[in-house]
Nucleic acid binder design. Sequence first.
DNA 1: CTGAAAGCGCTTACAG
DNA 2: CTGAAAGCGCTTACAG
Lengths: 345, 345
Amino acid sequence: MSIKGRPNSLDIAMRAGVSQATVSRALRGSPLVNKATREKIEQIAREVGYKVDKSASNLRTQRSNTLALLLFEDPTDDQSLINPFFLSLLASITRATAAVEQDLLVSFQQLSDDWQADYENTHKADGLILLGYGDYVAYRSKLERLTAGGAHFVRWGAARADQPGLAIGCDNIGGGCDVTAHLISQGCERIAFIGEASSRYPEFNDRYRGYRKALEAAGLSVDPNLQIDAISTERSGLEATRELIQRGASFDAVFGASDLIAIGAIQALFDAGMSVPAEVAVAGFDDIPMAQYCRPTLTTLRQDTMGAGKVLVDSLLRLIAGETVESHTIPGQLIVRASCGAGKS
Amino acid sequence: MSIKGRPNSLDIAMRAGVSQATVSRALRGSPLVNKATREKIEQIAREVGYKVDKSASNLRTQRSNTLALLLFEDPTDDQSLINPFFLSLLASITRATAAVEQDLLVSFQQLSDDWQADYENTHKADGLILLGYGDYVAYRSKLERLTAGGAHFVRWGAARADQPGLAIGCDNIGGGCDVTAHLISQGCERIAFIGEASSRYPEFNDRYRGYRKALEAAGLSVDPNLQIDAISTERSGLEATRELIQRGASFDAVFGASDLIAIGAIQALFDAGMSVPAEVAVAGFDDIPMAQYCRPTLTTLRQDTMGAGKVLVDSLLRLIAGETVESHTIPGQLIVRASCGAGKS
DNA sequence: CTGAAAGCGCTTACAG
DNA sequence: CTGAAAGCGCTTACAG
């Protein structure tokens, strides 16, 4: 209003006949302010479209009220193909962030070497949310640099004693177990696991542990020949499955450590003239949107992305507030579709 | 450094033996500063991990150096299923924004009524990027409120004389024409168009215009019975196609105004016992990742999301800088896959 | 090429 | 319950 473009708190104060300090207090919901005074101020602010200037407020309070979302993924050939699972997570994090009146800075650079950009962001945000199926070992040193600088962060992934920081993740062990048990219930006995089961990929590793657990519970043996490394892309899943076929090992099911891997596996099986699920059952993990559109539709473990976003944001905020926060696991849900031949047993 | 957590420009100044103003100038790359002085300052800044405080800088310059990305979409039942096409665009916008050293505030609320949140964001950003296949007429009044407040924005979509503001979009008319011409070249003569072709959905409308253009160019008649409204979801595409089948109109191809619509159409045709592409050819628009995983793989028009992000960000920045910017159209590319029976003619 | 000084718009002890 | 005042960390005319 007045001559300048946007009104400031002093403009509101003059209109309301109070001091600028009172305007600030009223609009922050301070209990000190008289109710009538507050209402008058709020009304005037609404009328003239006044909004507290974030830069000034942030400067004064030394808080940015901003969270940053960083993605770490192995770089892929197909430039922009960010794992759809993380995009779902993005949607729910966006919502959860808005619900607590924080801003969200998004850096989906997918350039693992462009760490500088991420580093910059850590200076703009009060805390970080880290997403990724990327090589965690490679990422870790970078993370430690941040932690040394006192950055607050939560990571979506597997909570492990040997990993720094707070992790919120799906129950990967339980999920891996559920998927495998389902395949076994369909009559499968020689189930391949496609995905790198090492400390570099803690989530895949946990899914693999669940897989072993289910096999052992059913009295089936764990054949190391039936596990092949892959990262979370369709191409990697395809190539790994091709290698599995070339090995000549016999198998009647494939458990892809992620849906993208499983979709690649279906392609490889199809290319090799094997039918899914008649000859080989296939299951994945994540329940990305594609899982219900690919043919055959994909049996998978649905991660609770909505719940995840909320827990990630809430945990981070409590961490920033100086509370002690524990790593936490969110249960998933088995979604049975055509690829594992439900009813075939 | 020192006693406080993070160093400020004065700390750097003292270390470098210069004034605080010189530190500020040096770090902004002012040509006034002596080269040796600048290098010394930069070195010290690097050593102590000093970063210019954004809040202070933004407050002083009255610029936020932040762009906001807002999504408007018709709310869907399946909660978090944001159109994958916009997620690709998000990735490229993220990259383009970082390249020009701006921050990106993302609001993927997908709650068309939660306009308040979007409104807030307009106060935090220097400009807005708007994405959506949503009902543009419903959205428009909200937009006009913003424009009245002097907000800068660019919209991804169709540029129309009757629509306010700047639009950057795919060449929807040309794309619609290319897809239809390709179907015709495959021997199709009765091509249905699924998608609302009205001013509420300007992009679909343009694709429909391209469709008509191609039909007319080939001497084929435009049968209004072969057009059915749908919004950009798989479900809507499925239902519309079901209705088309029930109408009893004969058709040998379906052109979905978006890939999601086309994927829904394939499902409906499949449910009705019709084979794709043998009996009915299907094509979509966008080239979302799913297009190459669904069966049959989907012929579609690929939008150049990488280019789009760059153009959107650059245009917005120029708009903010007060330059005159024209609406602009980016060509797409026909991607031929199995769903239209390439080679069947 | 550099410094001293003002001021961006808030928030919050301090005093009443 | 309210006001006057200081100060968050920068940027940039102004003066030299």
